[in-house]
């Protein structure tokens, strides 16, 4: 039924067709990448020093007990068979059980991954418009005090370690003025707005960290385009400068901007462990770190793979969007 719909759309519009073919092609490439990553993750976890059975049972366990436990966990089978079973299960949505506490991995990960996404998306909602706006303004007021001020501020934020920014914000906004909570503790029963309120500080911290990168890229991309002949043409046509930036330069600098946004979004999902730890936020990053310490292999593998998928998916999205932003590529690149 779904394929039938696609077929109808393809017939109706060659533009849709080329876009669809492109998406399918990139999707295929992404699947291969994910497969390779799954192998790498599996090998990486295999190479971790230590043994789950030993860790779980403790030093006092007899070799026989350890051996029996290993058998129960199917750790005695050769790696490629375990890999096959794991991948097969993963594809079918069965992430296995945690070795540490026996609970299903999906249950452990599910809610934490949702939390990570929630934090990432709320940060993105603030950071992306802010960065793009600041980037445009910096390009507009290029080489003025305003430009230097924006660049200076955002660059200093990116130069500080995340935990430093986090603690500064905590000491200022929650200790001194007591506006926001210093711990971002949330649970399943909280309402949307109280959740937002709870994560405002980590969100703000992350905004400080990612804005500079996106803003600098926006500014650079726009300034790069400002040297084009069509910008000179617009100036000669007597178009206002702000309109030139927003209407003529920005649409043509979208491609690099979209890419840097995707990288930062991916970072927000994958790389926020430190901020999660500082604010005691129950995200996936924290779980991953805990599980590595505990040798809880199914959890490590599953979260690793989920991170990779998120990363690849965002890059795929960026590719497609930046292609759609360019009318020339939209038609030719099939």
């Amino acid at each position: 039924m779904f394929l039938w719909k696609i077929a109808i759309m393809m017939k109706r519009d060659s533009f849709m067709k080329s876009v669809l073919i492109l998406i399918l092609k990139r999707w295929g490439a992404s699947l291969i990448t994910i497969f390779i990553i799954s192998v790498i993750i599996f090998i990486g976890v295999e190479l971790l020093p230590g043994d789950v059975a030993q860790t779980v049972l403790g030093q006092s366990a007899t070799p026989e007990t350890v051996e029996a436990f290993r058998k129960e966990l199917k750790l005695d089978l050769p790696p490629h068979i375990r890999y096959g079973t794991w991948l097969n299960d993963f594809v079918h949505g069965n992430f296995g059980n945690s070795l540490a506490n026996g609970r299903p991995v999906s249950e452990l990960i599910g809610w934490r991954f949702a939390n990570t996404l929630f934090l990432a998306l709320s940060t993105a909602m603030i950071a992306i418009p802010l960065a793009v706006l600041l980037g445009m303004l910096a390009a507009f007021y290029r080489n003025t005090l305003f430009d230097k001020l924006i660049s200076g501020t955002t660059l200093s934020f990116i130069s500080f370690p995340e935990f430093f920014v986090a603690y500064i914000l905590i000491s200022l906004l929650s200790v001194k003025f007591n506006i926001f909570p210093s711990l971002a503790i949330i649970d399943k029963d909280m309402g949307f707005f109280s959740k937002i309120y709870a994560i405002l500080l980590p969100s703000l911290t992350l905004t400080c960290v990612v804005t500079a990168h996106m803003m600098r890229q926006t500014r650079a991309a726009i300034i790069n385009v400002l040297a084009s002949a069509y910008i000179e043409m617009a100036e000669i046509k007597g178009i206002k400068r702000l309109r030139i930036i927003v209407h003529h330069a920005f649409p043509n600098s979208l491609s690099p901007v979209i890419n840097v946004i995707a990288i930062n979004l991916a970072y927000l999902i994958v790389g926020v462990v430190i901020v999660e730890v500082v604010f005691v936020y129950p995200g996936l990053g924290q779980l991953l770190v805990d599980s590595v310490a505990k040798r809880d292999l199914p959890v490590v593998q599953a979260s690793g793979l989920i991170f990779s998928i998120a990363y690849i998916f965002l890059n795929l999205l960026a590719d497609i969007l930046s292609m759609l932003s360019n009318p020339k590529l939209r038609q030719t690149q099939i």
Partner: peptide
């Protein structure tokens, strides 16, 4: 700015480069 385009206009050498590709 008020004069440019309205009282005096310009045709550039390379039309391909002087048209904004996005519009």
């Amino acid at each position: 700015r008020l004069v440019r385009g309205s009282k005096i206009a310009y045709v550039a050498q390379s039309a391909a480069a002087s048209f904004n590709p996005s519009h």
